[in-house]
């Protein structure tokens, strides 16, 4: 029998705890494949967030530090400043990165910190039970916006990629989605490119991945993928916002 598909070495041989239909598993695999294809698993150091991906240290087969809520970019800064040869990445959700960790991500980007951020945007707090996130869409119902998010009292959802792309230190900024195979392939390309830019010492890179949360959205997985394309992509347009080639 021919082996046609295998676990990539940078992923551990462990089942994940993610809900059925959740796209975290896909994104983990994309990150791991990128590390392996670049041959940097043995010098990679990941930083796990607080949120659904808090246990990422169990799934990535590389060194990992678990950070306090929102602080992953600061922790990654400490790591990278000690060992500049390490390939350092943070893996963060939207509550972690765009709410409590807003200062940390903005300043890591402003400094042009030579790290890569994998930003999983599913427009909701997953682990704590479906509360409103800074990325929750207008009208979207969550456990803390039961009547739908109202702009009047909670403001507009934050477009992180657009915001960070205003900073010269953020040399690579791209928003992708993982709702179908062609987009997953694009996402993989973007992640790999972000790591390559880090290896070339270019500066801060971030890949924002639109992702689903069937459990807290209250939808079947397929329905959630359709909701993502119909609702999230119009507000969070896909595409590259910055790349070193353009910066130079």
């Amino acid at each position: 029998m021919n082996v046609v598909f295998e676990r990539t070495p940078a992923l551990s041989d462990r089942p994940t705890h993610y809900c059925p239909g959740c796209t975290h598993g896909i994104i983990h695999r994309l990150v791991a494949e990128a590390l392996d294809e670049l041959g940097v698993r043995e010098k990679a150091v990941g930083v796990a967030p607080v949120g659904c991906a808090v246990l990422a240290y169990n799934y990535f087969n590389c060194d990992v530090q678990q950070a306090a809520h929102g602080r992953a970019p600061a922790v990654a800064t400490g790591i990278k400043r000690v060992n500049a040869d390490n390939v350092v990445f943070t893996y963060q959700g939207d509550g972690d990165l765009a709410s409590i960790g807003c200062a940390e991500i903005v300043h890591a980007a402003a400094r042009g910190e030579k790290i890569t951020t994998i930003f999983v945007n599913n427009a909701i707090y997953g682990m704590t039970g479906g509360q409103m996130a800074p990325t929750t869409l207008e009208g979207q119902k969550t456990t803390t916006s039961p009547y739908g998010r109202k702009i009047e009292s909670t403001g507009h959802p934050i477009q992180v990629s657009e915001m960070l792309a205003t900073l010269p230190g953020a040399v690579f900024v791209e928003r992708v989605s993982v709702h179908d195979v062609p987009n997953i392939r694009k996402a993989k390309k973007a992640i790999k490119k972000a790591f390559e830019d880090q290896l070339n010492g270019q500066g801060f890179g971030i890949v924002e991945l639109l992702s689903t949360c069937p459990t807290n959205w209250g939808m079947a997985p397929q329905e959630a993928l359709e909701w993502l394309t119909g609702n999230m992509i119009p507000y969070y347009p896909l595409g590259n916002f910055r790349s070193p080639e353009e910066v130079e």
Partner: peptide, 9 residues
């Protein structure tokens, strides 16, 4: 938290 990262490294 930068101290945390550096100490961990």
């Amino acid at each position: 938290n930068m101290v945390y990262g550096a100490a961990g490294a």
